[in-house]
């Protein structure tokens, strides 16, 4: 799998750490929204926006991957 780092270009997946689904942090006190942000995840068979950490340069990358095929629909941009 290849992911595009906004700094370094397209790189091998093994240079990245998976940081989970790309979500909006609601903030504020504990409630349904924060609960969902911390614990609830979609598990789509299809496109999923995810965050990756490019370990060599420290850039965070947002990419959209098809979970069925690992096709990188959006191979990676700054989050």
């Amino acid at each position: 799998m290849r992911i595009r780092c906004p700094h370094c270009g397209e790189r091998d997946r093994r240079e990245f750490t998976w940081m989970g689904a790309a979500l909006e942090r609601p903030g504020g006190s504990w409630g349904e929204e924060m609960h969902a942000y911390v614990f609830l995840r979609e598990n789509p068979a299809g496109p999923l926006a995810e965050l990756w950490h490019h370990d060599p340069c420290g850039a965070m990358v947002r990419a959209v991957r098809d979970t069925r095929t690992h096709e990188m629909i959006e191979p990676g941009d700054a989050p």
Binding site: T17, M19, A22, R25, L51, H53, D55, G58, A59, M60, A78, P79
Partner: peptide, 14 residues
């Protein structure tokens, strides 16, 4: 912690 800082600075609090 370094990775966490990257996450906070670039994603949570840009």
């Amino acid at each position: 912690v370094m990775q966490h800082f990257d996450m906070v600075a670039q994603v949570l609090r840009p």
